[in-house]
Amino acid sequence: MNILVCMKQVPDTAIAIRLDAEQKSIDRSEITYVVNPFDEYAIEAGLQLKEKYGGEVTLVTMGPDRADEALRTGLAMGADKGVHISDPALEGSDTLVTAKVLAAAIKGLPYDIVLCGKVATDDNTGQVGPALAELLGIPHISGATTLEVDDDAKKATATREVEGGFMRMEVPIPAVITAEKDLNAPRYPSLPGIMKAKTKPVDKKDVASLGMDPSSVGLAGSKIQPMGMSLPPVREAGRIIEGEAEEAAKELARLLRAEVKIL
C-alpha cells in the first residue's frame, strides 16, 4: 500500500509568539519549530496502515529549508521517504496555492491513500486537505477520529465528530483523510529510527521541477492577501477589594454596575 502523508512544520505551540515590525507575520527569529501536532496523528495512521498492509509511507511537505527537520522527525518515527518542496517563490502562498503545489508533487507519485492533519496549528485554516482532494479528483473525509482502511475492498471508513454526536462515513480509496487529534497516540521516534532518519531519501523539488509558473505561486499567485496580524489583548491584572465582606460585596456590586457595566 502506498501511503502519502502531507505534513507541515509549525512554530512550537509551547512558546510565546511575537509579531514582526510590519505586523503582517510572526517574528520567526526566536522560534522553535515542531511537526504540526495534527500531522503527527496522520503520520501515525500511515505507519499503522503500513504495519497492516505493507508498502511505503512517503511524507510530503512544502516549506523552507528548515522544514527538513520536521521531515526527519517523521522519518525517525518510521516513514520511508520524503518529498520536500522548497522554493523562495512559494513564500506567502495561500491555502489554495499550497494545495495546488502539493497536488502537483503528488500527481507523479503512486498512492492509495493521502493522510493530512485536520488543521495546522499556525494558520488554523483546515483548508489544504479538502482542497487537495478536490484538485486530485478524489473524495475526502475531514477530522477523522477513527479510521479503518480496507485495502482489498478499496474503501476507507472514518468517524467524524459532529454537533451532538458522531458521523460515520465511507469513501472509495484513493481518498484524502484528515486526522483529528484523538485518531491515535502518535509514537515517539526511537533512537534507532533517529539514527536512520538522516540516510532516508528525501526528494527535493522546486516550483520549476513541478512544472509550475513561479508567478502562479507565493504571495503574487495567491487570492488571499494578508492585511495584518494582531496579538490578543494582554489580560489586565485583577483587582482585590479590601475590607469587611459586606462592604466589599457592596463595592463589588457598584463596580460591576458602574465600571464593568455588566449588571
Binding site: E69, R72, I194, K198
Partner: peptide, 10 residues
C-alpha cells in the same frame, strides 16, 4: 549532531 538534537527533543 542533528541526531543528538533530535534525541534530546524526543
Amino acid at each position: 549532531s542533528d541526531e543528538q538534537k533530535m534525541l534530546k527533543r524526543t
